[in-house]
Computed example of a mutant assay.
Amino acid sequence: MAGKGIAMFPNRGDAAELKDGDWQLSLLNLQDRILQRVARSRSLALSSTRLTAVLDRARSIRAIVFINTNASTAGRKRVRAYGPAISDAPDGELVWQTGSEASDGWEDIYPRERPTAQMQWRDPNFWTGRPDAESLVGSTQSIITIMPQLFFVSRFTVEFGDQSNDDGFLDLGRLFLAGQWQFSLNLKPGVELGFLARSTSARSLGGTLYHSRKRHPRTMRGSWDYLPEPEMLSQLYELFRQAGTDLEVFLVQRPDDVVNRQRLSWLGRMPELPPIARGVSPGRAAGSLTFEEIV
């Protein structure tokens, strides 16, 4: 199941209490659907670039994501998830954390993006494989933490170590905390990945072509021919019914593909809700899924 795509909905982050750290632009901006409204730390000190998210109640959570960040490619993070309070752990028991024991839970915000075999010896990021600052321009970068399974979580603590950030502060955009629908069968081969062309061009009277460059949201379109009908009705049907064409869904197309996680995971909406075809074979149904990135 680990390699199957995941559609995450609904966002539990909007009902969470956000606190801790030192933020000159409020943590409440993490609960604003306009991605450009960010929480901004007062400095890059570890005491400043940390936060706690307390959920309205304990919920099944698979991922915690911050959409639209200025984190540098050298940045690190430590995420800890706590379960409900119990008698011998009144603040909740630690159920999962990033990293390893050797790293004390710290891991890179941006893992290796390109295999060494696809790089040139003189590339400045040859050894790390992480993206360079230039390659991040023009796309929405997310800090994505996917847990290996659903955990019953009541509180997250998140810490960032990004002292080399040239901006002198850390920006965090939209917070997305959600459970999952992890597909039992991946979308059939031929998934279409593309961009919504939004730049415009016009010619002057003299024939010179002028361009107005815009961001190009990513798009994805795929389908299933034989998904189990109970899953189609309890998951895709309910996703269509509850999210509609306006509510946010966070899509992770290939959870195991760390190299391409930034490319294949984004906050989006479903611009269309195509019908589900039931009974294409005994106990099976057909359906499709279309996503458009929110920028």
Rank of each mutant, 00 (worst) to 15 (best):
residue 16 A to Q: 03
residue 22 D to V: 04
residue 23 W to T: 01
residue 24 Q to C: 10
residue 29 N to M: 06
residue 32 D to H: 07
residue 32 D to V: 13
residue 32 D to Y: 04
residue 34 I to N: 15
residue 35 L to M: 12
residue 35 L to C: 09
residue 37 R to Q: 09
residue 37 R to D: 08
residue 38 V to S: 08
residue 40 R to T: 11
residue 43 S to E: 02
residue 52 T to A: 14
residue 55 L to R: 06
residue 55 L to D: 06
residue 56 D to E: 15
residue 57 R to K: 15
residue 62 R to T: 01
residue 63 A to M: 15
residue 65 V to H: 01
residue 66 F to N: 03
residue 71 A to G: 10
residue 72 S to F: 03
residue 72 S to A: 11
residue 74 A to D: 12
residue 79 V to S: 02
residue 80 R to F: 00
residue 82 Y to H: 09
residue 85 A to V: 03
residue 87 S to V: 11
residue 96 W to S: 09
residue 100 S to V: 02
residue 102 A to F: 04
residue 104 D to I: 04
residue 109 I to K: 07
residue 110 Y to Q: 00
residue 111 P to H: 03
residue 114 R to I: 08
residue 114 R to G: 02
residue 114 R to L: 10
residue 116 T to M: 01
residue 118 Q to K: 09
residue 118 Q to M: 02
residue 120 Q to Y: 07
residue 122 R to S: 14
residue 135 S to L: 11
residue 137 V to L: 13
residue 139 S to D: 13
residue 142 S to H: 08
residue 143 I to F: 02
residue 148 P to K: 08
residue 151 F to Q: 10
residue 152 F to S: 15
residue 153 V to D: 14
residue 156 F to A: 12
residue 157 T to P: 12
residue 162 D to M: 10
residue 167 D to Q: 11
residue 168 G to W: 01
residue 171 D to S: 05
residue 174 R to T: 11
residue 176 F to D: 02
residue 179 G to R: 05
residue 180 Q to P: 00
residue 187 L to C: 11
residue 187 L to R: 08
residue 190 G to E: 04
residue 191 V to C: 04
residue 196 L to D: 15
residue 196 L to S: 13
residue 199 S to R: 09
residue 200 T to M: 10
residue 202 A to S: 13
residue 203 R to C: 09
residue 206 G to S: 12
residue 209 L to N: 13
residue 212 S to E: 10
residue 214 K to Y: 04
residue 216 H to Q: 15
residue 223 S to E: 13
residue 223 S to W: 09
residue 224 W to P: 15
residue 230 P to C: 00
residue 231 E to C: 05
residue 232 M to L: 13
residue 233 L to A: 12
residue 234 S to I: 00
residue 241 R to W: 04
residue 254 R to L: 09
residue 257 D to R: 12
residue 258 V to A: 15
residue 264 L to W: 00
residue 272 E to T: 12
residue 274 P to L: 01
residue 277 A to S: 13
residue 277 A to D: 13
residue 283 G to K: 11
residue 283 G to C: 08
residue 285 A to W: 08
residue 285 A to Y: 07
residue 286 A to Y: 01
residue 293 E to Y: 03
residue 294 I to V: 15
residue 294 I to N: 05
residue 295 V to D: 15
